[in-house]
Nucleic acid binder design. Sequence first.
DNA 1: AGTGTAGGCCAACGTCTGTTGACTTTCGGA
DNA 2: TCCGAAAGTCAACAGACGTTGGCCTACACT
Lengths: 182, 182
Amino acid sequence: MARRSSAETKATILAAARERFAAEGYDRATIRAIAADAAIDPSMVMRYFGNKEGLFTAAADFDLRLPDVAALPRDQVGTTLARHFLLRWEEDEGMMVLLRTAVTSEVAVERMRQIMAEQLAPVVRRLVPDPEEAALRMGLVITQILGMALCRYVLRLPPVAALTHDQIVTWLGPTLQRYLTA
Amino acid sequence: MARRSSAETKATILAAARERFAAEGYDRATIRAIAADAAIDPSMVMRYFGNKEGLFTAAADFDLRLPDVAALPRDQVGTTLARHFLLRWEEDEGMMVLLRTAVTSEVAVERMRQIMAEQLAPVVRRLVPDPEEAALRMGLVITQILGMALCRYVLRLPPVAALTHDQIVTWLGPTLQRYLTA
DNA sequence: AGTGTAGGCCAACGTCTGTTGACTTTCGGA
DNA sequence: TCCGAAAGTCAACAGACGTTGGCCTACACT
């Protein structure tokens, strides 16, 4: 049996962890199950990631890859942002990991605040110079974005899951536009 | 030691369960902890509610108490709904129970779908007669409402938690108005 | 060929969980 | 006064979990 390299195994475990955390949340995603998915012994997970929290931290790391919306025509900010987040949710499991786990784990909430502050806040601040108002605007935007993600990908509420990409962009775009520029 | 009646004990357990489920979610809210809060033996919980799922079902039962928005002036639907949900979130722990647990438990999701269908759908359908369009409108509304509740009460994101009631009504009202009537 | 080391496995630990059944205590009605 | 049902306690079960330490084994380098 060919033996895997350290880096390969680590990547395999991480991929399995991301899937499990995204699908089941922190508590129900057991190390034993993740190890089984990766076709490895549970003790290897500990070797590479220290403990469960370490594994989670590695699995919940991601980049929003936000475009510089301040460079766009001002009236396209809302729809552009809506479309961007929609694609991002569907291609990066890390975002789902964080949303699912943040509800039960204080560590995950802290990580979410951090990502907001580091990745979303600077972009918003380029649109809204006043810091206090920028915080307000960002807060409103995040409620609508996370609300859509929650209902569509986590809860899978039928009327929301049935929406097409174009419908979502058409309806959420103006909302985000108003929250940011009105 | 004065002995409690069956109904009293059951109510005490239920109150403790609601608090624990709302604060910690389904998995972390243990029967032992709930029983301790109610100053009772864990086995009594089983006696009164059968099993953990039965206890949860009882704790997650609640009424949205939606007003008949179709009777209002049409342009006040959005703000009225925003204000109503805001108050409802803050006075009924049952809603928090369901939101927190729905993220990890399929049973809770099913219950949430049911409440939407039974309590929210009829109200929306009085505003939007066409059933297919009513489903679309309701879906949009629920994303914004749950998104706000998630960010404010569960994740406690600072910019969202800092909002006043009036700010929320002022900003979310027009959004809901557009989702329902535009 | 020999050997050190990195990758991997196995068995077990202590703890916590939901759940069960048998036992004890209280109290209201015949 | 007695007695049976109701309210409550106690101890234990079986399973799952995160985590640990010891042991094996294949491979690269001398």
